[in-house]
Design a protein around this nucleic acid. Structure first.
Lengths: 145, 145
DNA sequence: CGGTATCCCTGATGATACTG
DNA sequence: CAGTATCATCAGGGATACCG
């Protein structure tokens, strides 16, 4: 697999538009960009929110109940961040009980695919990772005790 | 719900047309697993390290010089974490000047693909994200000032 | 060379209370 | 309902110094 072998070096920016597996994540300028996006994805709640919204537009508290553990504060902040990045669209409907709906934008939807792939990798390999951890920790004890 | 049963394979034609995307990432048990992996990926340095190692085995300081900005402390911690997760293999060669080489394991290599896809998405869309941010911030000023 | 140990600061997050 | 404000906590990460 020459696919993942020569990743980070030099000029070829992104000819990512066609071939499925395009590895070309590198140049310093884009590197920060990548890291930037990765930060969003690695964020504790962003992915959960995006995945929830992928199922359709939802109101604030519905969304909240759909993501166990998230505080009102963090949901608000996460949504603001996603909105700012153009991944989510916020729609306020003036009404007696305020109504605010959130939905993914095209950009947000497009992010779902790569994120889902990562998620699928995680699901497929979590077992391997966990046993690796167990083994590592075991050897650690063995060494220390 | 067999939603997440056939997820970890294939290359291009998923069922991304129906509801928009392939999502099958939601079951509570796997949810934490996914979040777990996502945390690794979202980590400030893990991806950089993995991508560097994707080019081949490297010694500690070579790796360090290849990742501008990372401190010795963080490189060590990041490598330990990756090693614990079974993504990286650490090899110590007893010698006068200590020599330690790091290389990706099969698992680590397999992670490169999904991560690279995310990276490619980032590169392809960083422009859209940044302009969205600019617009958002602009409206914010407009509202506040 | 490769790594560990400390100190310290900043940002991220949770809990709680209040507002339109 | 949908936030905003405030406070306290805490892990992440940089700088530095020392060890085998």
């Amino acid at each position: 697999m020459e696919t993942a072998t020569h990743i980070a070096q030099e000029g070829t920016a992104m000819s990512a538009r066609d071939t499925g597996v395009t590895l070309g994540v590198e140049s310093p300028p884009q590197c920060s960009a990548v890291n930037d996006i990765l930060a969003r994805v690695g964020d504790k709640w962003s992915v959960r929110v995006v995945m929830s919204l992928a199922e359709g537009s939802q109101r604030f508290n519905v969304l909240r109940r759909g993501i166990p553990g998230i505080s009102q504060r963090m949901l608000t902040r996460t949504l603001r961040g996603l909105e700012r990045d153009g991944l989510v669209k916020r729609t306020v409907t003036p009404a007696v009980p305020p109504r605010v709906d959130y939905e993914l934008t095209g950009l947000g939807t497009s992010l779902c695919d790569p994120v889902a792939r990562l998620g699928n990798w995680a699901i497929a390999n979590i077992g391997a990772v966990e046993s690796a951890r167990a083994e590592f920790d075991l050897k650690l004890d063995h060494t220390k005790l």
